[in-house]
């Protein structure tokens, strides 16, 4: 047997493990890591990677379009882009937020449902972590992915705007505020979609049911509330605006950017406190129900 540098003799094969055991902390991190890998199709076949990357591309395409349009307008009429209200960082989630929702609805249940239906969950529950730790780690994995998916197009847009501007330096000094704003807005929308997706996925028996439920609620509530708030009195309409599931994080986005980009006009009459309070209430309630589901999980 040859000895190498360190002078160790390798005994191939199963033996006792004398190394470190990091317990609950490592277990939670492992479930989180596995969740991210599942969502992005890493360590799985090539087919599993297709859908996540189509979604990321789909969310970045509008950003590219915005950047190109802004650059083109800038070149055609010098300084025109300042006056014209071209879509920018503030408008982004109002327009492409649907892609984030769809992405979460399709990918998110993948992190919760198969573990329950294939019985893998019982292997997790006999390891040094609690059922609620598991649920939170999965939620955090979805959040990690969603934050990245929410930020990528904004960064693409930023790059496009900076390099499309006649003087990139002055563009940044004029618009630096957009950067922290879109980072926070991206986090706000990512937390929202991750939490409500986790809620649907925690209770649905099949992945498809969770996805169908989420998309159904999102699209239908937007269409109904969008139509209804235009016909009813504003006094009622502003409260109805709170029922459009997909628009709730957009209201917060609008507060962050101090602009109105939400498609539901009736929401302008609501105070910021109500909008933020409603957002937090929904996220907290959904999160509490996810934990409750896993605390009472019966096998």
């Amino acid at each position: 047997m040859s000895e190498r540098g360190s002078g160790q003799v390798f005994d191939l094969g199963f033996r006792r493990y004398e190394g470190q055991r990091e317990g609950r902390r490592r277990a939670v991190r492992a479930v989180h890591k596995d969740g991210v890998r599942t969502a992005m199709g890493l360590g799985r076949g090539g087919k599993a990677k297709v859908l996540p990357w189509i979604f990321i591309a789909a969310s970045a395409i509008p950003a590219l379009v915005f950047a190109l349009v802004a650059g083109a307008v800038d070149r055609l009429a010098d300084g025109f882009s300042e006056a014209a209200d071209l879509p920018s960082h503030a408008d982004y989630y109002g327009i492409a937020g649907i892609v984030l929702f769809l992405f979460a609805a399709v990918v998110g249940p993948e992190l919760f449902c198969p573990d329950r239906s294939s019985g893998t969950i019982s292997l997790y529950l006999v390891r040094p972590l609690r059922a609620t730790d598991y649920a939170m780690a999965r939620w955090a994995a979805l959040l990690t992915v969603m934050v990245v998916v929410a930020w990528i197009p904004q960064l693409v847009l930023l790059a496009g705007l900076v390099f499309g501007a006649p003087e990139p330096g002055s563009y940044i000094s004029d618009h630096w505020k957009d950067i922290p704003r879109f980072l926070v807005a991206g986090l706000v929308i990512a937390v929202y979609v991750s939490t409500i997706t986790s809620l649907a996925a925690a209770y649905a028996k099949r992945r498809a049911y969770a996805a169908a439920f989420l998309i159904g609620v999102l699209i239908i509530s937007a269409a109904v509330i969008g139509g209804v708030t235009e016909t009813v009195d504003d006094g009622v309409g502003r409260w109805l605006a709170l029922l459009s599931v997909g628009d709730i994080p957009i209201y917060v986005n609008d507060i962050i950017f101090d602009e109105r980009t939400s498609s539901i006009e009736a929401a302008r009459d609501l105070s910021n406190a109500v909008k933020i309070g409603w957002y937090l209430a929904i996220v907290a309630t959904a999160g509490a129900f996810v934990l409750r589901r896993y605390r009472k999980l019966s096998l």
């Binding site: 190394g19 990091e22 360590g43 076949g45 294939s118 040094p128």
Partner: peptide
């Protein structure tokens, strides 16, 4: 007794993950 293996991943990937959830670095 029941099935408990995810079908999309390999045994190596799964076992590594299971070892980590038991606390191994």
């Amino acid at each position: 007794e029941h099935d408990c293996l995810p079908s999309a991943v390999s045994a190596t990937e799964f076992l590594t993950h299971m070892a980590e959830t038991s606390g191994l670095p």
